[in-house]
Simulated scan of single mutants.
Amino acid sequence: MPKFHLSLQRETAEAGQVVEAPGVFGAIWPVTGRLSIEGNGTDAPDGTEFLQGRKHIRAVDSPATWLRFSLSDAAPESATLLRCDEVDIEQERVLLRLDTVTFPPGAVAWRHVHPGPGIRHLLQGDLTLKADDHEVRMRAGESWFEAAHSPVRANASTDAPKTAFVRFMILPIALQGQPSIQILDSDDLEKPRLQVTRRFIDQVVRLPHGR
């Protein structure tokens, strides 16, 4: 099965400085400042950008910071790398999704799976992740990987006014425009789901080296 690398980098640039993005496919999540991306024409909201091929990212007017998610053949080597995970992708065409999930205090994402792997980055708040065999507490600025069909329950802190993460997932193309969450336990299906998901990028791509 073909192997790819799903990675996340946090990059910065001074006003007018250019940073090269060599990834095959990717997405930009702006943190501070305003960005200009060479050759990119996109209507993605709130400054997010879908990337395909080599791009040059420039900070406009003032210093800027952004998160760059990438899907590439080779693992990136960079001091800005937050994490990199190897993924197996059998399909030639896949859906790349950039979205956010926002929780009010104490909200729960009941035990569930997603049908594709992805990297998450906690933007604010505090989130406890409970897998079937371990539990971990994530704090703002931390990142994690979830494999396809990996059961997890997420509990937002009751102390933080809001908990939110941004994620980049590789999904089946049949899910374009559709939710990817699959609640596992029938007892949870009727329980309240207070978290709000907002999709920014839903892009179908053909991966290199067709299968």
Results as ranks from 00 to 15, higher is better:
121 H>C: 01
80 T>Q: 10
66 W>L: 02
38 E>I: 02
73 D>I: 11
73 D>K: 15
109 A>G: 12
80 T>K: 12
60 V>F: 08
100 T>M: 07
104 P>V: 00
65 T>K: 13
119 I>N: 14
135 E>I: 00
92 E>V: 02
112 H>G: 14
114 H>T: 10
131 A>S: 03
112 H>W: 12
134 H>K: 11
50 F>T: 03
45 P>K: 10
113 V>K: 08
59 A>M: 03
83 R>W: 11
38 E>A: 05
58 R>L: 09
79 A>M: 13
72 S>H: 14
84 C>Q: 14
108 V>M: 14
128 T>W: 04
65 T>S: 07
105 P>N: 05
128 T>P: 01
115 P>N: 04
100 T>F: 10
59 A>I: 07
70 S>I: 05
94 V>L: 06
114 H>K: 14
88 D>A: 15
86 E>L: 01
101 V>S: 01
117 P>K: 13
76 P>Q: 10
68 R>L: 06
121 H>N: 09
39 G>I: 04
40 N>A: 04
106 G>L: 09
83 R>C: 05
98 L>T: 03
39 G>P: 02
52 Q>D: 03
64 A>D: 07
131 A>N: 03
103 F>T: 12
64 A>I: 03
91 Q>G: 01
73 D>S: 15
97 R>T: 06
43 D>H: 14
87 V>W: 12
76 P>D: 05
119 I>E: 10
105 P>C: 04
125 G>V: 09
100 T>G: 11
67 L>Y: 06
99 D>V: 08
37 I>E: 01
135 E>D: 00
68 R>F: 03
104 P>F: 07
104 P>G: 06
101 V>Y: 05
96 L>I: 11
84 C>T: 14
103 F>H: 11
79 A>P: 12
97 R>W: 01
136 V>L: 00
135 E>L: 00
85 D>H: 15
58 R>K: 15
90 E>L: 08
93 R>V: 00
52 Q>N: 09
92 E>A: 08
44 A>D: 10
54 R>H: 09
42 T>K: 15
136 V>N: 00
104 P>Q: 04
47 G>L: 01
118 G>D: 06
86 E>H: 09
64 A>P: 06
73 D>T: 15
110 W>L: 07
83 R>Y: 07
84 C>H: 15
133 D>E: 09
96 L>E: 05
102 T>C: 09
72 S>Q: 12
125 G>A: 08
88 D>L: 15
123 L>G: 08
117 P>F: 06
38 E>R: 14
101 V>G: 00
46 D>V: 01
94 V>N: 13
36 S>P: 05
110 W>G: 02
132 D>E: 12
88 D>R: 15
39 G>Q: 06
102 T>S: 13
52 Q>K: 13
77 E>Y: 07
59 A>G: 09
110 W>P: 02
40 N>G: 00
46 D>W: 04
128 T>R: 05
89 I>G: 10
104 P>M: 06
40 N>F: 00
95 L>F: 00
56 H>K: 14
67 L>E: 02
51 L>H: 07
101 V>E: 01
58 R>C: 09
47 G>W: 03
134 H>L: 02
105 P>T: 13
61 D>M: 02
73 D>R: 15
37 I>Q: 01
93 R>W: 04
84 C>F: 14
48 T>K: 11
120 R>W: 06
128 T>V: 03
68 R>M: 06
40 N>H: 02
126 D>K: 13
81 L>D: 02
79 A>V: 11
83 R>Q: 10
